[in-house]
């Protein structure tokens, strides 16, 4: 049973994990993007549609990322270009994404795809207990796990990473170095949108193998919250995402065990857990918030 929950944690947590890694890049550059929800939906539909048309899930995943990126372009233009309120703009993109995908998605509701399926890694997947949990997943999941150290390296060990983080902390420094902080921010938002779209595509192509209206059900918002929970550290965001995934996986397990817990409380649980996680780390993290982001979250003018 515990193995089931842990396997499920990785399975259903991966989409949130990808989105939260993307959001992490964006927030490190000082832009919070609640439109992540919209980007995930766009990615889920775009990825699914392309997989239906071409039969190739890799093309689908790429298209999903592209769709997520396109929606985040709106965020970049409005927030970085026009100085619009980040939180309100993110919400607008979330609504827009819901409307857009339910409009264009109605033709795909009953479509079927092969998509990505679990590929057990030889030898490793035979290890009792651990093998099934860690080494029997779809290719996108393996990729997402590799992505986490890659993003960590990019952010904390490369020049590019310093530029991104500086955009979120002290944009004057970038300015003084002859770099355009707005351009860097916009790129960070777009990278975040791509990964959110990829996460959405993972959800539709690899996890559920279907498209359902509004299928992300708040996973994008959770991804944003998890980044804050993670104190803007990639590895902790990964942990948070799997925690959310485990809370989701609990639903199936409880149903299988036949325990008398109302499914509605189980549905609520992942969101409440996210809130509790946020509350738990809140006190310790203030100094770690990227400065530009701190202003947005506190609601100060000029964010």
């Amino acid at each position: 049973m515990i193995a089931d929950i842990l396997t499920g944690a990785v399975r259903s947590g991966t989409s949130v994990m990808l989105a939260s890694q993307g959001e992490l890049i964006s927030e490190r550059a000082g832009v919070i993007n609640l439109g992540t929800e919209g980007s995930m939906l766009a990615g889920a539909l775009g990825g699914f549609a392309v997989t239906v048309w071409t039969g190739n899930p890799w093309l689908g995943a790429l298209a999903g990322g592209g769709c997520g990126l396109l929606l985040s372009l709106l965020h970049a233009v409005l927030v970085v270009g026009f100085g619009a309120n980040q939180l309100a703009t993110g919400l607008a993109i979330m609504f827009f994404g819901i409307g857009l995908t339910s409009f264009f998605g109605r033709d795909f509701v009953s479509s079927q795809i092969v998509g990505f399926n679990p590929v057990p890694i030889p030898l490793l997947s035979d290890i009792p207990f651990v093998g099934g949990i860690l080494f029997n997943h779809d290719p996108l999941t393996y990729l997402s796990v590799l992505l986490v150290p890659a993003i960590w390296y990019l952010l904390f060990r490369t020049r590019l990473g310093i530029m991104v983080r500086t955009a979120g902390e002290r944009e004057d420094v970038l300015f003084a170095s002859g770099l355009n902080p707005r351009l860097i921010r916009a790129c960070a938002v777009l990278a975040g949108g791509f990964l959110a779209g990829l996460g959405g595509a993972q959800l539709s192509i690899a996890y559920t193998h279907s498209w359902v209206e509004n299928m992300t059900a708040g996973r994008g918002v959770v991804a944003v919250a998890l980044v804050i929970f993670a104190s803007w550290k990639p590895q902790r965001a990964m942990l948070g995402a799997y925690l959310f995934g485990a809370a989701q996986a609990l639903q199936l397990t409880v149903q299988q065990q036949g325990w008398a817990i109302s499914p509605f409380f189980l549905f609520m649980f992942p969101y409440l857990l996210t809130l509790a996680a946020l509350l738990l780390v809140e006190r310790r993290k203030l100094s770690r918030t990227p400065e530009a982001l701190g202003r947005v979250l506190a609601g100060d003018p000029g964010g």
Partner: peptide, 16 residues
């Protein structure tokens, strides 16, 4: 809802 989204974007962009 697409129309409503468009309305929102223009308000947000036009607010500065």
């Amino acid at each position: 809802t697409i129309l409503m989204g468009l309305v929102l974007f223009f308000i947000l962009g036009g607010k500065r």
